[in-house]
């Protein structure tokens, strides 16, 4: 039975799925929805989620002492190390299991959540290391394209032309000049990994990918388009609409890469111009007032179109051709030597 709103409401109408209300995220923020989708899927599939969180909006707003909005085991360590931290938790779990301290049929799902700052930038090394080592965990970046926790500074995920406080649109410079870093491909290049993009406007696709990540024999990386209504300067009720538009303009293609095999999970037949995405958000308004806005939008248009075509081509040439076999089973020798 695929997870849909009706089925989930039956399961969760009287309980909080990992995260509870009473958190202090901005009204209309997409991040708690991302968390909800992920954890509901895990719980519905019989997993006990254990959550690691990088410093960021979600972290500070959900755990203001003495309150916690988490009713599952939770750890925040620092900004740049959520992947390493959760890799320690996951390893402790394997050690405990090996020593018979955990019932063998008990399923734990280790989630790491981080914003784009904690993922694309300061946390990239820790993330890459943990994925390369093959820990069984699901890393989810709620990508709101900037350091929103500290008030809209530029990150490696900020799109060109976006007005941020550290790359403002000025008289000379039209805001951030560089394209958004392609974190999905960076992560896919680890090759032992299940990688996917998701958006809250496509909940079935979202939860199917989480399910896949849960069942994947190795690390998973999920990039979630996650509107920051505050600093994208859109109305509080626009998070889902923003994601929808991102998909329809090819700004945020929905796809997955499983050990090198590409699948575009949402085909967009008549894409809308990326300019619509730009025009819908106040963070691009200072750019639009500049004479060079056209060039920047054109460059972005060219980029998103060719990226999408490239993804379709990759889907074609990688079909049924995984780069690697399943990730080596953990504890190959150690199980034999268990004491």
């Amino acid at each position: 039975m695929p997870l849909n709103a009706i089925e989930l409401a039956k399961l969760f109408h009287d309980k909080n799925p990992g995260i509870t209300p009473g958190h202090r995220m901005c009204p209309g923020c997409a991040a708690p929805v991302v968390v909800k989708f992920a954890l509901m899927t895990a719980i519905a599939k019989g997993y006990h989620p254990v959550v690691g969180l990088a410093t960021g909006c979600l972290e500070v707003s959900t755990t203001i002492y003495p309150y916690t909005a988490w009713n599952v085991p939770y750890i925040h360590n620092a900004f740049e190390n959520v992947a390493a931290t959760i890799s320690g938790v996951e390893t402790a779990f394997r050690a405990a299991k090996k020593r018979g301290e955990i019932p063998p049929d008990k399923k734990l799902a280790f989630f790491a959540f981080a914003g784009d700052g904690g993922t694309y930038d300061i946390g990239l090394q820790s993330l890459s290391g943990a994925v390369e080592r093959g820990h069984k965990f699901i890393y989810i970046v709620y990508d709101n394209e900037g350091y929103m926790n500290t008030g809209n500074q530029r990150s490696g995920a900020t799109p060109p032309g976006s007005d941020t406080t550290t790359a403002p649109v000025g008289k000379r410079i039209p805001g951030k000049l560089q394209l958004k870093k392609n974190i999905v491909e960076i992560m896919a290049a680890h090759e032992n990994v299940y990688v996917a993009t998701v958006a809250i406007s496509e909940p079935i696709d979202f939860m199917r990918k989480i399910e896949k990540a849960l069942e994947f024999d190795g690390p998973a990386f999920i990039a979630a388009h996650s509107a920051c209504v505050r600093f994208w300067r859109v109305n509080d009720d626009k998070a889902v609409e923003s994601s929808k538009l991102a998909i329809e303009t090819l700004y945020w293609p929905l796809y997955e890469v499983e050990r090198g095999v590409y699948r575009v999970t949402k085909k967009v037949t008549n894409p809308r111009p990326v300019e619509e995405y730009i025009r819908a958000q106040g963070r691009f308004r200072p750019l639009l007032a500049r004479p060079d806005a056209k060039e920047i939008i054109e460059e972005l248009q060219q980029y998103v179109t060719s990226r999408y075509e490239r993804l379709l081509a990759l889907e074609e040439i990688t079909k049924d051709k995984p780069l690697r076999g399943p990730w080596a089973k953990e504890d190959i020798q150690t199980d034999e030597h268990a004491m």
Partner: peptide
């Protein structure tokens, strides 16, 4: 196989201590 410790060959000392924090918070001797 003289010990049954799980070893994490991390990519930096920063991650070494981070993983120890995660492991210890999970009740492990790290």
């Amino acid at each position: 196989g003289v010990v049954d410790t799980e070893m994490i060959p991390v990519e930096s000392e920063h991650s070494a201590m981070s993983a120890c924090v995660g492991a210890a918070a999970a009740g492990a001797r790290a």
